[in-house]
């Protein structure tokens, strides 16, 4: 399914939060195999190690590397309150 990149992902929030009912938090999908296009130095060294025959090592994974916050209606024993949740929406993906 292509190289590591961002895809929209809408999730329901009704079990966790009072509002909103759903939000697009995005998710990262795709290949992190050689040749690595969006990896950092650790991922490049790790891929080189695995390509040299160490197939049992954990290989680089396509994950969010930049995020945005999400404004929600959270809750506690005293009622509801507006809250800013940091690192809730994926904005950019990379191989890590």
């Amino acid at each position: 399914g292509g190289v590591c990149g961002l895809k929209a992902l809408t999730v329901s929030l009704t079990k966790l939060l009072v509002g909103p009912s759903s939000a697009n938090i995005n998710n990262c999908h795709g290949s992190c195999a050689f040749p690595l296009t969006n990896g950092n130095n650790h991922a490049i060294l790790l891929n080189s190690h695995i390509e040299s025959g160490n197939a049992d090592e954990r290989s680089p994974c396509c994950v969010p590397v930049a995020y945005e916050a999400l404004e929600v209606v959270d809750w506690n024993a005293d009622g509801t309150f507006i809250s800013i949740k940091p690192d809730a929406v994926a904005r950019e993906c990379g191989c890590r």
């Binding site: 009704t14 966790l16 939060l17 009072v18 509002g19 909103p20 929600v72 209606v73 809750w75 507006i82």
Partner: peptide, 18 residues
Amino acid sequence: RIEKSCPDETCKAQPRIN
């Protein structure tokens, strides 16, 4: 400020957090 969408004209209760 949060929901961003309201298709209904009247305010129908929707359950949250069990």
